[in-house]
Write a protein that binds this DNA or RNA. Structure first.
Lengths: 151, 151
DNA sequence: GTAAAACTTTACGTTAACGTAAACTTCATG
DNA sequence: CATGAAGTTTACGTTAACGTAAAGTTTTAC
């Protein structure tokens, strides 16, 4: 009974069958597109890019809980500014290295890069906001001049 | 002798011939590409998009001070987050309305839009930075766990 | 006078993440 | 059994701002 506690990140990857029995365990592409409010085109695109690999019943795609979790992770990644390629890297890494120490380190590197880039962006935006305010002041002053000239 | 003072924005548009006599009054595409550290391809592209209209001596483009000033404005616009299309709108407006009250108002609207968008971006980035930090903490905690398990 | 440098036009390629359209099959339902 | 919903594949289109290559002309330098 060691390891009753499941880490947050792994909990999203490993689908403990017992805990989800009460909900579905397979989904159509429509189900998922509704649940996550994305188009079926997007879901198929993620498959094209090698991020998901649903089973097939004939032609039709059948998605498991694992696929569903992956979708969730893809979308979270997007919110965090990861490209699909970066997210795929993490997935591939997890495939090859279940224990995933490697993956965690890669994730940390990615996060660090993102944070750096975002901080830079933050600074840039602040600068531009100031510049914009300056230009704005200039414009206002000029407008007042013009309005004086032609009342 | 009224109007000795020239407004900042107009000063960039109107090239007072007397004030620039000591420098060149025509430039090659190479001159400008070096001065502004952009490729000649970019300069020709701006022409394609209708932002500049240099004279020609035969095939060769001859740029005047006015063109040079426009280039400077294009680049400033880019720094401020304006698209080429937006900058073109301002140019076109100036062409049709030299007095330019209209232009100033449009500029103010554009600036306002940009500021709003940038502030939104700023907020978004802050949120993501926090999320990233949270995920990072999770990863670190997990790494420590893993390292304990397999010393 | 010739070779290199600078200039020209034309036009396809790039990036990311899908949108959109066409043309088809499969499934459920009244 | 027809029809409409949901699914499928294929493949071109979108956006912004150029990059890059090819193939030609003109100018400058020695």
């Amino acid at each position: 009974m060691q390891n009753t506690r499941v880490s947050a990140v792994e909990a999203e990857f490993e689908t403990s069958p017992e805990r989800v029995r009460r909900t579905q365990d397979s989904f159509s592409i429509g189900d998922l597109s509704k649940e996550f409010d994305i188009t079926t085109r997007s879901i198929r695109f993620y498959e094209d890019q090698g991020l998901i690999l649903p089973e097939r019943r004939g032609q039709t795609r059948i998605y498991t809980q694992k696929d569903r979790v992956r979708l969730k992770l893809i979308l979270r990644g997007k919110r965090l500014g990861f490209t699909l390629a970066e997210t795929k890297t993490l997935f591939d890494m997890y495939e090859r290295d279940g224990s995933s120490v490697n993956q965690l380190q890669t994730m940390l590197r990615l996060i660090d890069d993102k944070k750096l880039a975002l901080r830079q962006q933050l600074e840039d935006i602040k600068v531009v906001l100031h510049e914009l305010t300056a230009v704005e002041s200039g414009c206002r002053a000029e407008l007042i001049e013009k309005t004086k000239e032609n009342p």
